[in-house]
Design a protein around this nucleic acid. Structure first.
Length: 301
DNA sequence: GGAGTTAAGCTACCCCGTTA
DNA sequence: TAACGGGGTAGCTTAACTCC
């Protein structure tokens, strides 16, 4: 395919069609008429030799070819935008930028309060949109710009994404302060005999603890799984369950509740809280500013 | 009724030949 | 070599039509 035959604006139209799934909406977004966008779609179909979008009721669904084209075209356009509009200095004090960040409730508890306080103080017009995004969808959201940054544990990130550890975290046990089985402290026997509460976003009843127990030929009973650690202070004081969670989150709960922290009676590897972003955005000064702040928060956490 | 496609007409731009 | 002018073409709009 000869690049001289390709109108770059068609790629912009393709990007909008992928985003909105509607010729009319894409046209409105780009400030053109709907027939003009329809014409662009016809030319795209000719160019790629594929329908690209097929009508299904009131929406235009992308074909497999269109889906495969989305990320490379989006990346190419992002690089072009950076090349054409070289980034200026990020003026935090006056910027009205909105940062989209994903993370679980652990990041929301441990990192977000510090980030929100810093931003409110140093960048009062900057807005944060913190949301939960399904783990498998995070790379695509970063690629397409729907997310600026993702916070979490990312063991095998795609090479096109950049990763920076923020801090290492160890596990501790959290149970009610007057737990009858823990008056002499946490032992392995008590740990395996107690009912457990597991915090898991995926809903499956296995975790790092089960892996460590399994190496010693032991098991535990997970009596309850919950998707958010924030409910622990409501549940644990009224039950005999024990939860194994990160130290920093436990330290947030224990002082103000009837909960006590115990060491895990098992050798467990610490885990890393990291931030991940698209390498396409490497030169984005606003994102660099945000990453610097998160690095500082990670060091102090 | 809403959304996509097609047709007709208009306009701006590009290409190329001519001229100074 | 640069400027100018004419023809061709691409892309836009509106209007009408089709489809779900």
């Amino acid at each position: 395919m000869d690049l001289r035959q390709i109108d770059l604006n068609l790629m912009v139209a393709f990007e909008a069609l992928m985003e909105f799934g509607s010729v009319s909406e894409a046209a409105r977004h780009l400030g053109m008429s709907q027939p003009a966008m329809s014409s662009n779609l016809a030319r795209l179909r000719l160019l790629f030799g594929d329908d690209l979008f097929v009508r299904s009721g009131r929406v235009m669904l992308p074909t497999r070819r269109a889906t495969a084209l989305q990320i490379p075209i989006s990346q190419a356009l992002a690089q072009l935008r950076v090349a054409i509009n070289p980034p200026a200095l990020f003026e935090a004090s006056t910027s009205r930028r909105v940062f989209n960040i994903s993370g679980g409730d652990y990041a929301a508890m441990v990192i977000l309060p510090h980030l929100a306080a810093y931003v409110a103080r140093e960048a009062p017009c900057v807005d944060l949109r913190f949301r939960f995004v399904e783990r498998g969808a995070i790379p695509e959201w970063l690629d397409t710009g729907r997310l600026d940054l993702a916070l979490g544990v990312f063991p095998n990130p795609p090479k096109r994404l950049a990763l920076k550890p923020l801090f290492e975290e160890n596990f501790v046990c959290l149970a009610r302060r007057d737990h009858p089985a823990l008056q002499d402290g946490m032992t392995l026997a008590a740990f395996t005999a107690m009912p457990h509460l597991l915090v898991t976003e995926r809903g499956d009843a296995t975790g790092a603890v089960d892996e460590a127990l399994g190496k010693r030929g032991l098991t535990r009973r997970i009596a309850l799984t919950v998707p958010h650690a924030l409910v622990l202070p409501s549940i644990l004081p009224r039950s005999d369950m024990v939860a194994t969670i990160g130290t920093r989150a436990a330290n947030l709960f224990a002082p103000s509740t009837a909960l006590a922290i115990h060491q895990v009676p098992l050798a467990m590897h610490p885990w890393r809280m990291s931030m991940m972003w698209s390498r396409q955005q490497a030169s984005d000064v606003g994102l660099r500013w945000l990453r610097d702040i998160l690095s500082q928060i990670g060091k102090a956490a």
